[in-house]
Amino acid sequence: MKSLGVRKIINNRIDQCFTELNALGRTAFLPYITAGDPDFETSKRILLGLPAAGADLIEIGMPFSDPMADGSIIQASSVRALKSGQTMNKTIDLVRRFRKSDSKTPIILMGYYNPVYVYGVNRFVSDIKKAGVDGIIIVDLPHDADCELYAPAMNEGLSLIRLVTPTTDHARLQNIIQHTTGFIYYVSITGVTGSELTNIEEVAANVKRIRSASALPIGIGFGIKTHVQVAEISRYADAVIAGSVLINKIAGTLDENGKSTNKTVCSVLNLVSKLSLPLKLKV
């Protein structure tokens, strides 16, 4: 990995957010939604409502036709978004509109490499930075496959959040930390998004392993579905990430044609309030 000549800027919204919450002794709540699911307007309304509902940071999925690390719930959300005409330009536009009313909440774009590669890596980092994005997670671009995105992202001052998983060994962990900014995303299970989270002890042991190697904040995600799990996981995490459970809520409110109803926005936001509550009560 070539990191010479790379300027690491570390004072973006993500770092500020973790610094502030850390001072309060609080774990962050980080909800995931797919851009354009079920349609652009509805996802914009959900996004705009997230901070007030309890989101400390927000992860926005860039829809992809072949989301190989995702379970059926998030796959379906990608399909709905693409069907309703979501594109990379619209996803960036979504962030731009969010930033008109919120200049504080960090936004992280998550997705797969192909749409980014086709959009053009340099154009991508420049456009999303201008729109107000703070960090990116590219699932199928682990640090040792990333010889194209790392340097441009660092130079734009974007955080490059990497995944650490139960299969990551010590040597890989050391390298991943070297090529991560913002926070480390610990994947709590071996499996796709939305699977069952069963082994909390393993999570605790692995997070301990990461902490002894790095001072970066740690977000924990995959399989977190209840406020009880949120509370439990928050004992180990700087941020608790929830995705499939929210997307499933969206899916449950749609009409028979897959269109949003008047319940869609409020039920997702209510769920965000409920899930994030244990983290606020801890203060």
Binding site: A145, R162, T167, T168, R172
Partner: peptide, 9 residues
């Protein structure tokens, strides 16, 4: 090798 971290090892 463009795969998720879980699969890299």
């Amino acid at each position: 090798r463009y795969v998720a971290e879980t699969l890299m090892p």
